[in-house]
Nucleic acid binder design. Structure first.
Lengths: 96, 96
DNA sequence: CATCTAATTAGATAATTGTCTAAATATAGG
DNA sequence: CCTATATTTAGACAATTATCTAATTAGATG
């Protein structure tokens, strides 16, 4: 499966926080990094993991790089989790 | 956060497959292990991770241990993912 | 109680990961 | 072209993790 990288990306609390912040719109690498008690290279690493997993988009604008939430992949993850909740015990005639 | 262990549990593909199988109802440790190309101790380790994360329930019945999906925690994860999709850019008057 | 089956625990090991510091790249503006 | 700012890349290191084999626990049954 390809979304394995997305699940692995979500395993880190810092990365989940980053995603939560991006819910309010795009942010630059620097602005994001400034919100965490962690060095910029470490944050940069987290950005790369999120980008490689397809969870965020990135674009350079001058000296800065803007990161944004990629809702498509988040939707896939949501669908996966919701699927788990669909009772599959009687696969023929859904309604018990 | 406490659900950190749940996210970490989901990071492994074998564990995600286990959860998917439990969608069809409870299974014994042995029955589950039989479905994977992996030793029983390794599988047992994955069961423990899932149980510690609250993603599965377990109960002994004689010699066997039955594992089942804990939908409550799965619901929490679903809610977290869906929250990410709610646009929060204009927090006062929700409807753009 | 001896033994069989089901499952876990213990302990080792290789691979992956998260973090850091130092160095490099990229862009903007004198 | 030099310097300042923004960000990433490189390389090292400690911690965590996934897996294995061997040993152990727990229950059933003759």
């Amino acid at each position: 499966m390809n979304s394995n990288s997305a699940f692995k990306a979500l395993a880190d609390p810092t990365r989940r926080e980053i995603l939560a912040m991006l819910r309010n719109g795009e942010m630059t690498a620097g602005a994001l990094a400034g919100r965490f008690d962690m060095t910029k290279p470490s944050m940069s690493h987290h950005f790369a993991v999120l980008r490689d997993a397809g969870l965020v988009t990135s674009r350079r604008e001058g000296q800065q790089i803007w990161y944004g939430l990629n809702t498509t992949v988040v939707q896939d993850l949501t669908a996966w989790a919701m699927d788990l909740l669909k009772d599959n015990r009687h696969p023929k005639g859904k309604r018990s």
